[in-house]
Amino acid sequence: MAEVGEKIDAKPGSRSSRNALLQLRQLSPLLSLVALLLLWQLITSAQIYPAFIVPPPAAVGEAFIEALQSGLLLKHLGVTLEEMFFGLILGLGIGLSIGYAIAKAPMLEYTLSPVIVAFQSTPIVAYAPLLVIWFGSGPTSKIVTTAVIVFFPSLVNTIVAVRAVSPNLRDLMTSLNATPWQSFRQLELPSALPVVLAGLKTSVTLAVIGAVVGEFVTQGSGLGYLVTSARNQYDTPLVIVTVLTMTAIALSLYSFVVLLEWRWLAWRRRSKR
C-alpha cells in the first residue's frame, strides 16, 4: 500500500493532468452542441437564407417560450406521450412474448417469419394510412403505429437473448430440479436482460417515430400534427421547436433505459474492472 501511495505522491503533475483530461472528456459532448449553436448563429447573421427559412436561435427561443406559455406545446406533447406510452407497452408486450415463444419453439419461427419479415421490410410510412382506415383517426391508430414499429427490434432481441442462454447453465438448473418459473426468473431473465435492454434503447427512439408518423397521417393533435400545421403557416421557429421537443423525448427515454441498465446490470460494471 505504501508503495502505491509513494508513486502517486512522486508524480503529482501527471495525476492532475489526467484529471483535467477526464474533465475535458466529460465536457466534450457539450462542446459539439455549443459549436452547432454557434454555426447556426453565424449562418443566420450572415443572412445567407431569409429568416423564415432559417430563423436565428433567438427567434426559436422566443417561439419556444410562446408555445409553452400558450399551452400549445404541452397540449400536443401530452397527446404524443400518451400514444407513445400505450404503443410502447403494446409493442413491447407482444414483441417480448412472441420473441420468447419463438426462442423456445423454433418451429414457430418457420411459421411466423414470412409475416414478420414482410411487416418489417414494408416502410411504416406507406401503410400508416391503412392503419388509420382500420383503427380510426383517434389515438388508437397512432398507438398501433407505435406498437408496430416497436415490435420488431424487441422481438429480434428477445429471440437472440433467450437463445444465447448458456446450455450448461440450463443443465445446472435441470440438475437442481428447477421449476419452469425458476428457470425463467433465475436464469433466462437475468441472462437475457443485457440484450433486451439494448433492444429497448432502439425501441424507445423508434416509438417517437411511430407516434409522429401516425399524427402526420391523421391530423388533429400531437407533435406530428403541430409540425405540419406550423409548416403550413410558414412558422419555421415553431417547426424547429416541435422537432427539438421530439428529440428531447427520444433522449429522455433513452437516458431512462441507460438508468435501468445502471441499476439492473450493476454486476457488469463490477465485472469490467
Binding site: 450448461n168 443443465d171 445446472l172 433465475q186 436464469l187 454486476w267
Partner: peptide, 21 residues
C-alpha cells in the same frame, strides 16, 4: 430417471451465473 436432490453434479467449467455474487 431424472435429477435427484441427493445427487449433485459439478461440471467441467465452473458454470457460474455472472450476475450473482
Amino acid at each position: 430417471t431424472g435429477p435427484l436432490s441427493t445427487l449433485a453434479i459439478m461440471f467441467q467449467d465452473a458454470n457460474l451465473m455472472p450476475w450473482r455474487t
